[in-house]
Write a protein that binds this DNA or RNA. Sequence first.
DNA 1: GTCAGTCGTGTAAACGATTCCACACGACTA
DNA 2: TAGTCGTGTGGAATCGTTTACACGACTGAC
Lengths: 346, 346
Amino acid sequence: MASIKDVAAEAGVSVATVSRVLNDHPSVSADARARVLAAVEALGYRPNAVARSLRTDQTRTLGLVISDVMNPYFTTLARSVEEEARALGYSVVIGNADERPDLQDHHVRTLLDRRIDGLLVSPTDGGSPLMLDTARGGTPMVFVDRWIPGVDVPVVRADGRAAVRDLVSHLYGLGHRRLAIIAGPAATTTGSERVEAFREALAEYGLPLPDAYTGQGDFQAESGRRVTDAFLDLAEPPEVVFAADNLMALGALDAVRARGMRVPQDIALAAFDDIPWFVHTDPPVTAIAQPTGELGRAAVRALVDMIEGRPPQSVTLAAHLVVRRSCGQPAPTPSEQPPATNRSLS
Amino acid sequence: MASIKDVAAEAGVSVATVSRVLNDHPSVSADARARVLAAVEALGYRPNAVARSLRTDQTRTLGLVISDVMNPYFTTLARSVEEEARALGYSVVIGNADERPDLQDHHVRTLLDRRIDGLLVSPTDGGSPLMLDTARGGTPMVFVDRWIPGVDVPVVRADGRAAVRDLVSHLYGLGHRRLAIIAGPAATTTGSERVEAFREALAEYGLPLPDAYTGQGDFQAESGRRVTDAFLDLAEPPEVVFAADNLMALGALDAVRARGMRVPQDIALAAFDDIPWFVHTDPPVTAIAQPTGELGRAAVRALVDMIEGRPPQSVTLAAHLVVRRSCGQPAPTPSEQPPATNRSLS
DNA sequence: GTCAGTCGTGTAAACGATTCCACACGACTA
DNA sequence: TAGTCGTGTGGAATCGTTTACACGACTGAC
C-alpha cells in the first residue's frame, strides 16, 4: 500500500509538502498542490490513520459501550450515536457488554488501548475500579441512559418519573390494585430508579409494593420469564406486571403464554422502553417511550464538546407513556393507526 | 499516559527488554521480568495499540459492515461475530450501512484507512468500485449472508431454497393459490435469490408468480408497508404475502392493520428471517429461520484463516421453516410453548 | 542598494512501539 | 589458557505521519 513517501516521490516534492496538501495547510503553491493531488490519484493513496493517530495523538474515534446489542433500545441508541458522530467527523466503535461487568471492562480496556478520543458508556453495574479510574483519569467520558452516582461525568438520560406516574394512574383507573414490577439490576441506575419511581407513584394512590411483588431481573428476556413465573405461582398473584425493560416484557409474555393464560384478561402487562414490535404483539403492549434518538445525539454532542475543550452539558429528557391494550383498556384506535414502525420512536 | 520508556526507566532496563517482557519473548532473565512487571503495575502502564499497530502492521481488528443495525437479524449476526472474534483474539468494528451504498462505501473506506486486518461484508448492492477494488486488492475479505457474484471472495451464507419450498408446500396445503412476494433489492443476492427460490417452488405446484404479485422492497419496514398497500389495492389481491425479510414483514403487518383487516383471515403472511418477536406478534408469524449465530462464527473463522495465511472455507448452511399461525393453520401448540425467546434462534 | 518581511519548501525530530544486530559476560570445551 | 558458545541486554532503525525550524528567493519600503 502506497505511503506518503511514494506520493512525494511521484509528485517530485517532499513528504512535508504532501502532508500539507493533505491537511490543506495554506502555504502550498498551486502547482505543488496540483502535482500532489495527481500523484495521490495515480497511486490510489490513502493516508494511514494509524500513523496519523500516533503522531497527532487523536483517533477521531468515539467508543460506545452498551449493555446489550440484542435490545432494540440500545440498537436505536447506537444508530443515532453513529449518525451524530459521523456528522461531527468522528467514527464510533461499539462494545457490547451483554449486561456482563467483565465484558464491559474488557471493552473499556480495549477501547482505551486503542486510544479512542472519548467514551460513551451505559454502565451495566455500579462501576468497576477500571471504570472509576477512567472517569477520574481525564479520558473524556459521558454516561448515557444509565450512570454511576458519585462520579463526575456528564449524564445524558431520560427521566421516566412522570411517565411512570401516568402509567400507575392509567392502571389505577382500570381498576388494578395489585401491581408488581420486574426490576433491573439494583446496581444500575435505571434498575433502581424505575422501581423507586414505581413505588412512589403507587404510594400516591395508597398502594403498597410488597417484596413479593418486586422481582429481581437483569434486563434480559430469561429473567422476565423467571420472575413472571414466580409471580404467577403466588397465592395471590399480581393483576399487573410492569417490566423495567422491553426484553423482560418479552420474557413475561412468554411465561404467561406458557401457562395458557392471556394478556390482559388474566394478567396485565406494561413495559419500560417502547419499541416498534410492541405495536404488533398480542396484545399491543403499553409502554413508556424514551426519546432514544435524541438521547444518543445529545450524548455525542456532550462528548465531543468535552473532547474539543468546550464545557459539556448534562441532559435530561422526558419519557412518555404510550397506552395500548396490554393493560385492559381498548386501544384508542385513532392514535394507533399506522405509526411509522421503524423510526418513529427514535 | 505512561509509555514504554517510563516503564523502562522505572524498572532500570531498556525499552527493548520491556517490550520483550510484554510480548513474552523467552530470553529475559527472571529478575528483569519481575522488575518490569512491577514497574508496569506501579505505573498502570498499558501498551499503546496505535503505536504497536504501526510497527507490526496489524491491528488485530476485524471490520464488519452490515446492511442495517435496526434489523434483529444483523444484530444477532454482529453479536456472534464479535463473540467468535473475541475468542480468537480480535476485536470487531461495526459499520452500519443502513442499506445505503454510499454509507457502505464510507464505512469500508474508514475501516481500510484504519488498517483493519480483515473485512466482513454483507453488501447492500452489486458492488461499488471501491468494494471491487478492495476484494481484488488483497485485503482479507469474506462475504456473509449476502455476496457479490463474480468476485473471488469466500462466502458464508444460508441456503433458503429448501425452506422456501417447504413454505410453499405449507401454503398450498392450506389452500392458498394466489401468492405474492415482497422482494429485497435485486442488486443484493438475498434480494434476488429469495424471489427465484419462491418462483421455482411455485412452479412445482403449477402456480404462476405474476408481476403484479412481486413487489419491490428494500428490506426496510416502510417498503413492506408500501408494497402491501399496493397488493391490497389490486382488483384481485393475493391470499398470501411472503416478505423477504423480517422488517418488511413488520411493515406488511402495519399496512394490513391500518386497513382494519386481519392476518391470516383476510390475508396470510410469512417472512424470511425468524426473530424472537415473531412468537408474540398478532398472530405469531410463520418464518424461515437462518442459523444466524453459526453463520457469524463461520464467517469469522474463514476470515481469520485468511488473515493468518490458512486457506479459507466458503460455508453454506441450511435454513428451515418455522410454522406459526400467520398463514392460517392452527399452531401446533406443543412446539410453540416457551421457546427461549432471545437466544434460541441464533 | 540594503533590510525586513513573505512565501514556499525541505530537513529532521518526534510519536510509541518492535526487532535486528552487536556485545558483554560466564561457562564450557579443547 | 585460549577459543567457542549461549544468554541476556541495550542501541538504534523502523513503521507513516505531522510539524517546528531553517533556508532561499522574492517583494516592497526606506
